[in-house]
Design a protein around this nucleic acid. Structure first.
Lengths: 343, 343
DNA sequence: GTACGGCATTAGCGCGCGCTAATACTCCGC
DNA sequence: GCGGAGTATTAGCGCGCGCTAATGCCGTAC
């Protein structure tokens, strides 16, 4: 953790250098760079030419310092190695680019400890706002950080004043799945969860239980984690229990795929013997080889809304908190079918 | 593209504020923050306490400006939505964290146009170094950027003086695949490429052809793209051609999975009728459901080496260029088997 | 009592840039 | 030839911080 090698700085040309070369004052160069008017065209061209010849590049640090504002927004990604966040991030990036914002990413590595440290880093870089993807940090700590900077939380329900939330409508998602399966005649629908240590998984499980009860069905929950192993182990648990459900609702696609693999190994056919439904509608689900029925989350919409809300808040156009729940849709593919007739 | 709303800056406490509260001069606060010695313990504690009470957070911008160096390094990701880069990035992040470096990510969106713009952004943020993941930018432009800043290119062979390269040993990778298949009795081994517009795909294809020729086999190349559709279309092409190969070497896992899907749809069994081998050994390949034979790239090693080289160069400890080719390994799973006997 | 050495603290410049208030330089009309 | 309106340009402060040279303070030795 000690100080790393003091890296020699490359001397880059400054406005002063450009000014000297163009034979004008530095402030004029600044004016030209900012695109200010009231500058003679000839002079402007001379300045731009000099800048180009010198390979001048404005110093974003100094600019932010002087303007006391930055066009960079910090993005905290809970788990970079999770493809889901990759897709999410891509959408954010697209939106940010359109709004002329720079993104500064703090790469989470599933170590909750470091999340606070990463936020510190981002804030030290004077980001104008924060975008948190499924943060696992405690609400109380969150509140402390968010008082400093406009914040939008994505994928997790929090109720911290001054923080906006964009998330999926979990209740609807679960209902879509359960109703779809029920309509196919399924009554014993098990849910393999994404763990008990993160909100999204807990929310999803709660939504599942509610949806089941609404249909007069008995919830049947098996603990898991957001990974193929979770699905595999979940199925093993179910198999050991003896009495199998006729359908499995997995907390995400990875779990679903893991579950299908385990079912096939056990000699069970999907969907003839058992239906499986995933969640996220990731790239994985749409592969011909997998062709998984899944809940689709409109990520583009996520990105749009999140950036929009953040900009609004950064502009100080709003005070309270807003929570946007985006409606997911169900994509029916080949892993869900009629309930087998084993009554 | 116009100027976005001028975001009101949050007034954050400065060293000056801390100094006032602690009843000392600002410079002393600076000294304490830097961890300098020759400060009375009592005074130091008073300063730290004041900083804590005020919620003071050092301004990384001002620090970088004053020290004329930054501990941030810029990472250019060619295509954020590609899971491969997500994994790669995770490894880089881990390494960077250990070295006390901040990562600033420019999210590429497959639009080659923007790559230069992204590099500009990074450089304007005064990054101390650049890490480029499979950049598609021209070598000449690359040279211009890299003269400004220490640079390490990952996943693409470039010969620009002053730029280090960390990449996979494509020749070895292709040989592993071809030899493996040949040892299983395959002679007609087709290669579905990753396109003709990017180096890695071209390199991989060239390595394939060489490996085939070395064994006295005839290369058989089908154009594709780095996506499941590439595999699907590649297989269709092969099917239309009439004479099928007995094995397919896909340029990456996504292609392989797409190919397998298409083969199954055509009523062909893998690996009984046709073997399929992928490349990358992504999470996808190791799924029970897929269980794809693939070429494993030790990403951790990539990350380590890249960061290591970059640090060396940033410290000015080296001048020339170095190219490190990392040896991949073959992970044999269930999609490759003995060649069918249809002579 | 004076000189001296070491420790603790401070004054102040500079990093690259934004921006305001002030100045110099036109071009008119009378 | 002179005032004035407008345009083009400049001097200079401040952003938050790192860092060096300078200063103040204290105890000790002679």
């Amino acid at each position: 953790m000690g100080d790393p090698t003091p890296f020699a700085a490359q001397p880059r040309p400054t406005q002063q250098d450009v000014a000297r070369r163009a034979g004008v004052s530095r402030a004029l160069v600044s004016l030209v760079m900012r695109g200010g008017d009231h500058v003679a065209t000839a002079t402007r061209d001379r300045v731009l030419k000099a800048a180009d010849e010198l390979g001048y590049r404005p110093n974003a640090l100094a600019r932010s310092l002087a303007r006391r504002q930055s066009r960079a927004i910090g993005v905290l990604i809970n788990d970079v190695s999770n493809p889901y966040f990759g897709g999410m991030y891509a959408c954010l990036a697209r939106e940010a680019e359109r709004s002329g914002l720079d993104l500064l990413v703090a790469p989470g590595l599933r170590t909750p400890r470091s999340e606070a440290g990463l936020l510190d880093t981002l804030l030290e870089h004077q980001v104008a706002g924060l975008l948190l993807l499924s943060p696992t940090i405690r609400e109380s700590s969150l509140a402390a950080y968010c008082s400093t900077s406009p914040t939008v939380v994505i994928g997790r329900e929090v109720s911290v004043s001054g923080v906006d939330v964009v998330t999926i409508d979990e209740a609807l998602g679960a209902r879509l799945v359960v109703n779809h399966l029920a309509a196919l005649g399924h009554e014993r629908i098990a849910h393999i969860t994404g763990g008990s240590d993160n909100r999204p998984a807990l929310d999803r499980a709660a939504a599942y239980r509610q949806a089941m009860r609404d249909l007069g069905l008995t919830p049947d929950q098996v603990p898991g984690v957001f990974a193929p192993e979770g699905g595999r182990d979940g199925v093993r648990t179910l198999l050991q229990r003896g009495e199998l459900p006729t359908a499995i609702f997995a907390a995400n696609d990875l779990i679903a795929v893991g579950a299908i693999g385990a079912l096939r190994s056990a000699g069970l056919r999907v969907p003839e013997d058992l239906s499986v439904v995933g969640y996220d509608d990731s790239q994985l689900a749409s592969l011909d080889l997998v062709d998984l029925t899944s809940v689709h989350q409109p990520l583009e919409r996520f990105g749009q809304l999140a950036v929009e809300l953040l900009i609004e808040r950064m502009a100080g156009r709003r005070q309270g908190s807003r929570t946007e729940r985006i409606a997911p849709t169900l994509v029916v593919r080949s892993t869900s079918g009629p309930a087998p007739d084993r009554s």
